[in-house]
Design a protein around this nucleic acid. Structure first.
Lengths: 205, 205
DNA sequence: GTCTATAGACAGATAGAC
DNA sequence: GTCTATCTGTCTATAGAC
């Protein structure tokens, strides 16, 4: 899965931080999980823990940014698409024993006021999601303003519902979010996706 | 503000964890911020850091659970109320320099898979919010099913939008959430609140 | 570029004087 | 019930052999 040492360090860090956040993960944990000794971590990432986290979050963020468009590709009605996103998320969560999907969210709340370099990293990930989602919805025929608002609402509701679902070990918050947001958009048509299709959905990091 | 030593320890812990999460706050930090020496922390909380966090989160959770009903009290239309909640949240956030409103959310994502005692504490807080919110909306004339779904959706969307807003240092996610959810509920009437009025909105812990 | 050993600071927790 | 001194373990980071 991970060819280089560098890569295995990043995937190990992302996986650990997804579960335990930033401060809860030690360099020793990352070393053990990646199979690399501590020295290698500092050899590949001279910036230490912060740099590892920054790159791990950025990589994971890019991967997760593809998920929403991949799911929406299968729908031609915005309301149905929104419902599908949350239903898919609920299913994934239940299958993974309610572990959070994305390390970015786990870390973002913890470091927003303290580690500026990581705050900007999470901000950049969120911004990329929102800009990318907006562009995607525009390509599916929505107006730019509406595309952006829908993307912001979906991403925000997803992250919050994940938080509740993890703490409660129950998918109800995700389903309630979908059920509440979807009717609003029912009847709004999406034009067929322009690209050929490629992107497949993948849950694991 | 905080009379007893015990109380000042809990408010200091809640305030610190609101900004830095659980693992990011040390006992020494709590001691310094509360004015109590380390020994006092263990005298009052034999369970150590976990017990302090558990009680701090529970207390803060109760306080924040009153906020949504307090805001909604001022509205007689569900759509306007939903919009009001997010507008209010956006205003508060901007005023506090985008610090998260509630320590429960900051901590919940970090410990859901690792510190079971704190996970149940956050779960209990969320459950109390949802049950309390449902009961409140029922008292305002909504059906139980809809009241619960609306509460779940509001709480989830709020937490997620807070996360985005903190990372981005921008209130747009909160406003987008309100704008997206509100129209759905416009025209659904709320009967006047039963109680006399008392509860005033308070942002600080 | 890989890996070991360890420095130096700090964590959570405790004992016990007052 | 308050507070100090300290124990033990772990943290991030580094030095330097290979």
């Amino acid at each position: 899965m991970a060819r280089s040492t560098r890569e295995s360090i990043l995937t190990a860090a992302a996986e650990l931080m997804r579960h335990r956040g930033y401060a809860g993960v030690g360099m020793k944990d990352i070393a053990e999980a990646s199979g690399a000794p501590i020295g290698s971590l500092y050899h590949h990432f001279r910036g230490g823990k912060v740099e590892i986290a920054r790159e791990a979050l950025t990589n994971a963020g890019h991967a997760y940014g593809l998920l929403i468009p991949a799911v929406v590709d299968g729908y031609d009605d915005l309301g149905a698409a929104v419902e599908g996103i949350f239903a898919q998320a609920a299913e994934d969560m239940a299958q993974t024993g309610f572990a959070n999907m994305c390390p970015v969210a786990s870390v973002a709340g913890e470091i927003a006021d303290t580690v500026e370099e990581l705050r900007t990293a999470t901000r950049d990930v969120f911004t990329a999601w929102i800009d990318g989602g907006t562009a995607y919805f525009v390509s599916r025929g929505l107006g730019r303003t509406m595309g952006r608002q829908v993307t912001l609402a979906i991403v925000g509701a997803l992250e919050g519902a994940f938080l509740l679902a993890r703490a409660m070990r129950d998918a109800e918050p995700l389903l309630a979010a979908g059920a509440t947001m979807a009717p609003q958009f029912r009847g709004i048509a999406l034009v067929p996706p322009a690209h050929v299709g490629g992107a497949t959905r993948s849950v694991a990091t």
